[in-house]
Design a protein around this nucleic acid. Sequence first.
DNA 1: GTAATTGCAAATTCTTTGCACGGTC
DNA 2: GACCGTGCAAAGAATTTGCAATTAC
Lengths: 165, 165
Amino acid sequence: MKNAEVLKKIKDQLHNGGYKLTPQREATVLVLLQDQKTHMSAEEVYMKVKEKSSDIGLATVYRTLEILTDLKIVDKVTFTDGLARYDLRKEGAKHFHHHLLCIECGKIEEVEDDLLSGVEKIVEEKYHFLVKDHRLTFHGICSSCQKKHSQEDSEKLSKLHDVIE
Amino acid sequence: MKNAEVLKKIKDQLHNGGYKLTPQREATVLVLLQDQKTHMSAEEVYMKVKEKSSDIGLATVYRTLEILTDLKIVDKVTFTDGLARYDLRKEGAKHFHHHLLCIECGKIEEVEDDLLSGVEKIVEEKYHFLVKDHRLTFHGICSSCQKKHSQEDSEKLSKLHDVIE
DNA sequence: GTAATTGCAAATTCTTTGCACGGTC
DNA sequence: GACCGTGCAAAGAATTTGCAATTAC
C-alpha cells in the first residue's frame, strides 16, 4: 500500500474519530510514515516536523501522538530507557510487531512474523485471559555486534600466536 | 526456597558486587520479598519501607533499586503508564517471566511458564540475534472482567424480557 | 459562527544528582 | 581516618495542562 493511500486512510480514521484535519496533524503523520523504522520519541517527531518547514509546538506533537495512539494508528512503546516511542501500525497487522533490542549498540530491529499465535492460545486457555494485543521485545546481541566480538577474539588469538612464535 | 534463604543469597550477591549491606538496603529487599505480586513503583517501595518503621529516603530507594537491577536481582519493567516498576527475579529463572495486563481494571498477572523457547530459536536462526532476555506482556481482558461483562449482558437481556412481557 | 485546536509557558511527575553529614572497618 | 552510603533539597528530563489566540469545517 502506498504512503498516499495510507495517509488517506488515516485521515478518514481521524474524521471518523471526530477529529479535525489540521496541517500539524498531517505533518506529524507524514513524518511517521517516512521514518517507520526509527521508533521516534515525541521530541524526535517534533524536530523532524520542524525540519520540514512546518511549524509546530511540542505540546501539539504530544497531543497528536496521543490521539493516534487512541485510534490505534500508532503504538506507544517504552524500552529500557523509559522514553516513550511511537510506531506506526503496519497495514492490516492484527497485532503489534516485535522488537530485537541490542544491549551493546542499542539498535532496535523489527520482527514482523507472527510468532505468538500459539503462545496466545495457551494464555487464553490456561489463564482465561482474552488477549487483545501484546508487547514482545528480545534483549540480546545483534548480528553485527556478534561479528565485532569474533573479530576481536581472532585478533587476540593472533597476538597470542605472535607471542608464541 | 524460603524468604530467609533468598535474603541470604541476595546479601551475598550484594557483597560480591562490592556493595555493603545497609539497613536501608535490607529493608528494601524485604519489602520486595514480601510483596512479589504487586509490581511496585519506587514510590510504593519507599512507602512500604517507611510503614515498617524503617526510615529511608526516596533517593536511597531509587539508588538501591538501581543496584539490584544491575545485579539482576530485580527486573525493571515499564508498562503502558510509563512508570518504572520493579520485580524480584524468581529463583533460578533464566528469563524474565511474562505479564498479563488487563486493559479494563489494570490488574497485572504473572505467567511463569516458559512460553518462548521455541520463538527464541526462530529469532536466533532467522535474525542471527543472540537472545539474552525478553519482555513479553499481553494486553487484554482478565477473567474477572470477562465475567463482569457476561453478567451485565444477561442483566440487559432480562430487562429486555421484562419489557416484552 | 463556533467549537476544536494550537502555541506558549507554567505546572506536574518521575528520577537523578550534589553535597554535607554519619557510620563502618 | 578514608570511604561508602544516606538524606535532603535542588536539578533535570519527559510529559501534561491552562489559557488566550487562531483555525477548520
